[in-house]
Design a binder for these strands. Structure first.
Lengths: 335, 335
DNA sequence: ACGGCCCATCTAACCGGTTACCGAAATTTA
DNA sequence: TAAATTTCGGTAACCGGTTAGATGGGCCGT
């Protein structure tokens, strides 16, 4: 492959030393205007581009942040990514995105990659199957700033930016109750995810604040379209079927809706549904889905801003922060 | 921040030279077993990780490929990305993903970033608003291998891996004709994209092969949900409205379907629809959308494999290749 | 006892920049 | 006019590895 133009080439052609070229290019006052102009002109003629790798080695920074995300295919994560890019980009940082595909093994390899590639900081949303966090601990041992987003893990020295799951769930369930629903099922994420716990708390609180007793029988572990299709079939056939379903994400709600319609239930008359995400899908399905907007784009911007501020701190000795993003219920046809 | 362990640290503690450590770590035969074992043991105790940046500088490679994509939010592109990661990953390459958001300006900046970050190769799908290709020429001038995917540009020294748009469109339109459709509208991508041209040709050919005369009045420039909602309103109200719509992607087809249903048309009895993508959305809408599967995952794998083979060639003197990915029509409820 | 040879390791240059420090010429000052 | 001070640019170390070639001690044969 073609060798790139270096300052050495410029120095040789101009008969000056490489340090002069280096200084001239960055407007160092030690260099005379004449020399500086000559260097700059030749540099642009030759198409000189500084070698980032050499700079990175010198400064031991890469100006790169690593992002670990379960799947970019999910609307929420892709919108987070947009926010991340926006901020990173404005601050001259590059972004390396890796998907765990909800696989723990893959996640471990990705974090190792972060270490060997010497990213300056890490944004991470770990997989649903991650119960062991030693791979993240290694990143922290290396004093690489890390911000968890959406899914958090309190005990590590890492900031987190999360969705206000509690209040999102509370809003959603309160809304359903205001529509007259009494038997509200909750299709929930696995319990070990903090978001699962918090949404459950919000669900419970909304029920209890409205005089409805909480029953664990109404909570199902189900957070994908396919699972929703499967379990809804039996749930919705029962004589004491729920009159509303609050689902942990839009696709799950839509899966349930599909089954409901197939069973001849009318939406929203016989059964009301609320999702969580405000994804594209939520206005593609019919009727359009009432859902809780998670503001992924803003979350991405927030998390990246926080991470960059940590990187700029240049010390690992800071108080860990936990930021919560507001949610907003979007009322549509399914309620 | 914490300084990473280097071979220098190991050398000092062991009282040997850094070259000995370097060689010991890579099982060089010059080093005695005793020394080698000692070095390796200390390395693992100290948690030594080779500094990729230094290696990159030495070898002037980064083991990184840059990916330029319009928007990861689109199902097709996110599935391509999955394929890219899969292959890159197996070959110990990292992937840097950048979204142009269909902005030409952004795209130019991203390609500059590829140059300064010294990626070893580029996978690119340019934006709809790109008419000037000098930014790609710069990459090629630097002899960085490039593979265009999905959207190609013939005149540059770059391979391309594209969807067989012609046959995909031909299949889709033939299918509609076999269902008895006579007036088939085509919601098309901008003409300057090769994929737009090829699908139009496939559309024309399918019509003509079945004795239907092609009429330019049936071709509309429309490739988003919003545009489809807007233009379909008037198109579907006309007394000589089409009896089928073939759309350039799923969301456009779904936008049209939504309007059709609002106008009281029955799908598929009054109007049939075919999309292009086989996205998640295509089985969320109702009825489920007949669509042409583009096999994004396979396309991503193919393009990355080709790119990596070019990188490994280690010369820029190769014949440019153009690979076409087969498509497959998926028949569902809208036809 | 000495030249030759092998083995294990070290020295130093290199990748492409940055930058502290040094030195010679030009200019100012006494 | 000699000394002091700028001005301008060069030298060399450094970032963390790799690697060709040098070095030096031990063992061999004659």
């Amino acid at each position: 492959m073609k060798r790139q133009v270096t300052i050495k080439d410029i120095a040789r052609k101009l008969g000056v030393s490489i340090s002069t070229v280096s200084r001239a290019l960055k407007d160092h006052p030690d260099i005379s205007v004449k020399t500086r102009e000559a260097v700059k002109e030749l540099a642009s003629i030759l198409g000189y581009k500084p070698n980032m790798i050499a700079l990175n080695l010198k400064h031991s920074r890469t100006n790169t942040i690593g992002v670990l995300v379960p799947e970019v295919e999910h609307y929420f994560f892709s919108s987070v990514l947009n926010g991340v890019e926006e901020v990173a980009y404005k601050n001259d940082f590059s972004v390396m995105v890796f998907q765990s595909n909800e696989s723990y093994m893959r996640e471990v390899l990705i974090t190792q990659n972060f270490l060997t590639n010497r990213v300056d900081g890490v944004l991470a949303s770990f997989s649903k199957n991650t119960h062991d966090f030693t791979h993240f601990k290694k990143i922290i041992e290396n004093e690489i700033p890390m911000v968890f987003f959406d899914r958090e893990r309190g005990e590590l020295h890492a900031d987190s930016v999360i969705v206000d799951d509690y209040s999102g769930a509370y809003q959603a369930v309160s809304h359903l109750i205001s529509k007259g629903c009494k038997r509200i099922a909750f299709y929930s994420a696995p319990r070990h995810l903090v978001l699962g716990k918090n949404r459950l708390e919000g669900y419970k609180a909304a029920l209890e604040d409205n005089g409805i007793t909480y029953s664990p029988d109404m909570v199902y572990s189900c957070d994908t379209f396919d699972e929703a299709e499967k379990i809804s079939r039996s749930i919705l056939k029962k004589h004491d079927r729920p009159d509303a379903i609050f689902a942990v994400n839009d696709l799950t709600a839509i899966g349930a809706m599909k089954v409901a319609k197939k069973l001849g239930l009318r939406v929203p008359d016989d059964i009301r549904l609320v999702g969580f995400e405000n994804s594209r899908s939520s206005w593609i399905c019919e009727p359009e889905l009432t859902t809780v907007d998670q503001f992924g784009f803003e979350l991405g911007k927030e998390a990246t801003g926080l991470l960059l501020s940590r990187i700029k701190l240049n010390t690992f000795d800071y108080e860990v922060e936990r930021r919560m993003m507001k949610t907003q219920i979007v009322v549509r046809g399914t309620t």
